[in-house]
Write a protein that binds this DNA or RNA. Structure first.
Length: 269
DNA sequence: CAGATTGTTAGGAG
DNA sequence: ACTCCTAACAATCT
């Protein structure tokens, strides 16, 4: 489930643990699937090299190295990071392991193997190739207006489009639309300037709060509390509902753009 | 245990 | 050539 706030947490974790140690070896469990360059090339670039810093655009992470090439890292749906010394502490589902000469290891953990590792020469080149938009955390109303221009499809799938607002994922998109009081299926081209402004503000606010909050500590007016029942250990009912924190109406669930979408039919228009 | 889940993208339709 | 939409991908958890 890593969305922008978690990837930012991973970035800081790497900054705090894994910089300026010489890499001695790299293991990749399933390079054919998860490594976008040849494994031998990847090793050649990294052995004897060091990580020197990190950058993030949306959910995409970049690990800068002393010798120039940059490791790209995307966490897919289940990616995580780990740092340890003893082989016995190797995290379950460690899919790539970077060994340092200090004896410590950095692990790219990813149970479902949707994450990707690769190399690029520059963050800017990569950004252009992937057509990544301006990071959602600092997305301005003007940038969002530009991104949505002439788009006829439903607003929610557009929020998930990394060319428009990289960093917004499925539950954050629902939260953003709830806070902005916009219906997930509203065609983008019907949004008024004031609504786009509201939307841009909500994107920044939700991401800022998500960056700090532990999941269960989100403000009580947040929709996330209405989707947590789904994952609540005690719940066995699949179509239970919680009430809208704003108007108390039952929160609805439907599929928009093929993704589970929670919304309040009364508050969001 | 069948079904839901998650982000991204290939490919098809229009 | 472009936009839009669906489904596939892996693996786990419920």
């Amino acid at each position: 489930m890593p969305e922008l706030p978690e990837v930012e947490t991973y970035r800081r974790f790497i900054d705090e643990t894994s910089l300026y140690q010489t890499i001695t070896e790299v293991e990749v469990q399933d390079p054919k699937r998860q490594l976008q360059v040849d494994l031998d090339d990847f090793r050649k670039v990294l052995r004897g090299n060091q990580f020197t810093g990190t950058q993030r655009i949306g959910k995409q992470l970049f690990l800068l190295t002393a010798q120039g090439p940059i490791v790209t890292m995307h966490f897919g749906m289940t990616g995580d990071v780990g740092y340890y010394r003893d082989a016995a502490d190797t995290p379950r589902f460690a899919r790539a392991i970077f060994h340092f000469e200090t004896g410590f290891k950095f692990a790219f953990i990813d149970s479902r193997k949707f994450g990707r590792l690769g190399l690029t020469q520059s963050v800017d080149t990569f950004r252009q190739q992937k057509k990544l938009g301006p990071d959602a955390l600092t997305l301005s109303t003007e940038e969002l207006t530009q991104g949505l221009a002439r788009k006829k499809s439903a607003i929610k799938p557009l929020l998930l489009d990394q060319r428009i607002a990289p960093g917004v994922g499925n539950w954050i998109a629902d939260e953003v639309l709830f806070q902005a009081q916009l219906e997930p299926e509203r065609p983008a081209h019907t949004l008024q300037p004031t609504e786009i402004d509201r939307l841009a503000t909500s994107i920044r606010e939700v991401l800022e709060i998500a960056a700090e909050a532990i999941y269960r500590d989100f403000p009580s007016h947040y929709l996330i509390h209405a989707r947590e029942w789904d994952e609540a250990p005690s719940s066995t009912i699949t179509n239970a509902h919680l009430n809208c924190p704003r108007c108390q109406m039952l929160i609805q669930k439907k599929y928009v753009g093929g993704r589970a979408t929670y919304f309040c039919p009364n508050c969001q228009m």
